[in-house]
Write a protein that binds this DNA or RNA. Structure first.
Lengths: 216, 216
DNA sequence: GTCAATGATTGTGTATACAAGAAATTGATT
DNA sequence: AATCAATTTCTTGTATACACAATCATTGAC
């Protein structure tokens, strides 16, 4: 439990939302949450406001908080921005790569290779996340890293859905290979281009996403 | 006064920070703010937490809130991300331009021409903002537009400083011209490139920024 | 039978009270 | 005179209480 109850609650409720325990559209009653977590309404309200700022819930004045249910086109837009930011991170990483970042990327890439080879999509989901985070860090831009992490967190559930799509695991990993090559070769523009393609949702992948969203 | 006191306070305090009434590094005492605005501590705390989420202040547990004083390199990083997002907005705008957006961009561009011609940097500061906002809207990506607006707001004070630099007004406007041409010609990649250059801080403009920051 | 109006209920918005931690001040000791 | 410890004060973190707005149900009219 973090140093203050509000932040702890934020993480708790955020996890509950991301794990779909609190479904999109569901109303979050302050009093119910307060009793559930054994605290008063005050820190609950704090947590809700933070989640509102992150964009996970919406607080309508005098009408309470509801879990946001983004339309498919909005998720597409979010991936579009994510692709752009990751592209920038990749290009900076390629230009600024040092031994430490190189080692981190290599290590994460190896773990992806193992989980992809084993066809373990849950493991790959985690390793893939670490791989991308390693690139954010390698950009050596703290602000960019923060922005990427924040958006990544918001998109996490959908990234997971994407991995369920047929062949996505091996496709994803082979794309990783080309990205690593470009970064290690110091080819910033190529890394940018590859990451944009890798992260963005082009063509049929959009309908795959919509299908997997409505399927649940 | 907005529908709830918390949001109103957020705007009030935000303006006070952006207008340098609350200087970077300054401590924001909840009780002082509460009495100043004639409310209780509760909505003040709400406002502070929202400002914390935006990134304008930092709340250290049990030690209160202070106005963030970003290091120059961090502001540079923020402009770097802003340039990327605006570039994306421009490229999308070029591809998706409709009559309405075209009219909005043209109108804002004309106003920039007038204020730049008059050498009125305060007017240009405002018109320039509208010009950029018109491009965000023309991207037809609500999420991207929101992200751009948010980052734009955080960088607003520094954009203003930049305009003070010698010749920046006319340089800025001539860059606008090329951007408008590219967007209206449907040349997305050119619009992206031009906007990246226009918004980003390359070379000597970084030292200009640092100089104007330390000068105040 | 449907729609509108009014009252009851529920839940948010704000204020205040209380608890706990951090900073500051004062006193003592070296 | 300077430094360290203890105590006090001040500020934040949390809980509770109260007021008011929104929703829902019930009742009455058309």
């Amino acid at each position: 439990m973090s140093e203050n109850v509000g932040r702890w609650l934020r993480d708790e409720i955020e996890n509950a939302i991301l794990s779909n325990e609190f479904a999109p559209g569901e109303r979050l009653d302050e009093m119910v949450l307060a009793t559930r977590f054994g605290v008063s309404r005050t820190p609950v309200r704090e947590a809700l406001m933070q989640l509102n700022a992150i964009g996970l819930i919406e607080i309508r004045p005098r009408r309470g908080a509801v879990v946001i249910d983004p339309a498919p086109h909005r998720i597409f837009e979010m991936f579009e921005v994510m692709a752009e930011l990751e592209g920038l991170a990749g290009s900076l990483a390629a230009r600024r790569l040092d031994d430490e970042s190189r080692a981190a990327i290599t290590a994460a890439h190896r773990r992806c290779e193992l989980s992809a080879g084993a066809g373990d999509s849950d493991a790959y989901y985690y390793d893939n996340e670490e791989f991308h985070k390693a690139i954010y860090a390698a950009s050596r831009s703290e602000f960019l890293e923060e922005q990427c992490l924040q958006l990544h967190r918001r998109l996490r559930p959908y990234r997971r859905l994407q991995l369920r799509v047929r062949n996505r695991l091996s496709t994803s990993f082979s794309e990783h290979c080309t990205i690593v090559d470009a970064i290690f070769a110091g080819n910033g523009e190529e890394a940018r281009r590859l990451l944009r393609v890798h992260v963005g949702i082009q063509g049929e992948r959009f309908s795959d996403l919509v299908a997997s969203m409505t399927a649940r």
